[in-house]
Structures are given as structure tokens and as C-alpha cells.
């Protein structure tokens, strides 16, 4: 298993390198730059701006300098849009916010999603199944930018229990986490139901029942482990997405997370911030996919590390 992980980690290096290189050149070939503005600065000012950020050097040299700084110093450079902050600082500042939002949403998604999914599968084709499945379907269909404002309208404006937006006090976490959690809960519920249904028909479940195991034990001990497989593969990329923040949720609720920076940096042509967030996102995605593979083998006796 250790060999498997070590090999996968090593494979990550060229992948990250390709992602960084492609991003570096792609963002440079996009029209417009960090200083493209409606009020054009004079040519001499523009020259000085480019010199200040070394944009006047040949592109390959900028690329080499960037790679050198990132690899040897872990320095992702200064932000173009926010001159008094470095990309490292912005990420250090905002990643924890996205992580907190992500973890809370994930907890909600798993708690709600797994419960609904297992219930629906166990009580297949009864009214319980229909209610759970419909709830999941609605969750998938209602976008966050509708659900979020609806929750705000009801609980913040009508009942006055929460702030309408912001990230100031612990209670401000409730509405955004609920909004983001509900969407993922819907997917988790559907995947769990599907996975469970497949497993519940397997021979080893019948064997377990025949050996007199209680229904609770059959479901939670024998079936759930296999039934969760599709959920686990879904969770890898989903967790990466959820942890790096959600642009929509962060904008609607005015949350200082990384998701907004990730999207806005591209609009701002904030070259260094784009690269910084892409590197982080790529590393997270690769890392979590690896974690999913490990979890798959652990959950599914048919799989082996190789």
C-alpha cells in the first residue's frame, strides 16, 4: 500500500508541472492584462507598471523565474489586483474560510444524504422511498442561487434569526452551510440509494440474513460498506470542489472564501493569483482522488493495490 501511495505521489509531480505550465501560458495568451482598464494609463506609465512586475521580460524568463520562486521558496508572488497582499497570504487567509464552510456543508450533506439514501433503499417503493427520492430530486434541481436567497428570506428577513449575509459570528455559518450542504446531500442520497439497492440484492447479504443477523446489522455492517462505493468515488472531486470554496455561495452570502478569488482572479487577469489557486486546486484534486482510491480498496474487497 505504501508503495502504491509513493508511486502515485511521484506521478503527481509531472501532472502538476503540466497544469502549471499550461495555466501560465494560457492566461498570458488571453486578451487583456492585469492593467487593462477603461481609463487607459499613458504609455510611459504602462511601461513602468510592466517593469515593476517584470512583465517586460521575455515570457520564458518570467516562466522560469516563477517556477524557481514557487519550487525553491514556496513563494507564489504578489497579487496584481491587491498590491499589498501576496498570493500566499490571500490563500492562507481565505482557504480556512472555505474549509470551514466546506466541512460544515459536507457534514450536512453526508448526514442528510446518507440517511435519505439508506431509508429510500431499505423501504424501496414505499411512500418513504418516494418522499426521500423526491427530496433528493428537488435538491439536485434547485440551484444554490435560488435556495440561498430563499433561506435568507425566510430565516433572516422574515424570522430575523440570522444575518442576511456575512461571515462574522458562528451563527453566520448556518445558512450558507445549509444551502451548499443540501445540494450535495441530494447527490449523496441518490448515489447511496443506488449503491445500497445493488448491494442488498447480493448473495452475501442473503447469507448474512440467513445466518440470523439482525436487519440493522445487515444494513449498517454488511450492506452500507459496499453501498457507499459510488458515494466515495463521488466524494473525491466533490470534496475538492467543496473545500476550495463555492463561487456562488460565497458571493450570495458575502463570504471571504477562496472560491471567489479563484473565479475573480481570472476576470482580473491577476496572473499570480490564478496560478496560485490553480496549483492549490490541482494538488487538492489529485490528493483527494488518491484518498478515494485508497478508500475504495479498503471498502471493496474485490480491489487490490497495484
Amino acid at each position: 500500500m505504501l508503495r502504491f501511495i509513493a508511486r502515485r505521489v511521484l506521478e503527481t509531480i509531472p501532472v502538476l508541472f503540466i497544469i502549471v505550465t499550461a495555466t501560465f501560458f494560457m492566461i498570458r495568451f488571453v486578451p487583456g492584462g492585469p492593467f487593462t482598464a477603461e481609463k487607459a494609463v499613458t504609455p510611459e506609465v504602462m511601461r513602468n507598471l510592466e517593469r515593476a512586475y517584470h512583465l517586460d521580460q521575455p515570457l520564458w524568463q518570467q516562466y522560469a523565474n516563477y517556477l524557481g520562486r514557487v519550487i525553491f521558496h514556496g513563494d507564489l508572488g504578489p497579487s496584481f489586483k491587491y498590491p499589498n497582499r501576496t498570493v500566499n497570504e490571500i490563500i492562507a487567509d481565505k482557504l480556512p474560510v472555505s474549509l470551514e464552510l466546506g466541512l460544515l456543508s459536507l457534514a450536512i450533506a453526508l448526514a442528510v444524504g446518507l440517511t435519505l439514501g439508506v431509508l429510500a433503499a431499505v423501504k424501496r417503493n414505499t411512500w418513504i422511498d418516494y418522499v426521500c427520492s423526491s427530496a433528493a430530486m428537488i435538491g439536485i434541481c434547485v440551484p444554490t442561487f435560488v435556495l440561498g436567497p430563499l433561506l435568507v428570506l425566510t430565516f433572516a428577513i422574515h424570522f430575523g434569526w440570522f444575518n442576511a449575509s456575512g461571515w462574522y459570528t458562528p451563527i453566520d455559518r448556518v445558512l450558507p452551510s445549509l444551502t451548499l450542504g443540501c445540494v450535495y446531500a441530494a447527490y449523496v442520497a441518490r448515489l447511496t440509494r443506488g449503491g445500497m439497492l445493488e448491494v442488498l440484492n447480493q448473495d452475501y447479504i442473503r447469507t448474512a440474513r440467513a445466518k440470523g443477523a439482525s436487519e440493522t446489522r445487515v444494513i449498517f455492517h454488511h450492506a452500507l460498506r459496499g453501498g457507499l462505493l459510488p458515494v466515495v468515488s463521488f466524494l473525491g472531486p466533490a470534496i475538492a470542489g467543496i473545500l476550495t470554496g463555492s463561487f456562488v455561495i460565497e458571493t450570495i452570502f458575502q463570504i471571504p472564501g477562496l472560491g471567489r478569488e479563484f473565479v475573480n482572479s481570472a476576470f482580473n487577469r491577476d496572473y499570480t493569483l490564478v496560478l496560485g489557486t490553480v496549483i492549490l486546486y490541482a494538488a487538492l484534486l489529485i490528493g483527494l482522488n488518491l484518498a478515494v482510491d485508497v478508500a475504495q480498496v479498503w471498502l471493496n474487497p474485490k480491489l487490490k493495490f497495484e
Binding site: P149, A156, I157, G160, N163, S165, I252
Partner: peptide, 12 residues
């Protein structure tokens, strides 16, 4: 950033 968010904050 969002005018709709602002409006909800104003109302709240």
C-alpha cells in the same frame, strides 16, 4: 458585490 445581497442585508 451583489446588489441583491446588499438589498437583503438592508432589509435585515
Amino acid at each position: 458585490e451583489l446588489a441583491d445581497t446588499e438589498e437583503r442585508m438592508f432589509r435585515a
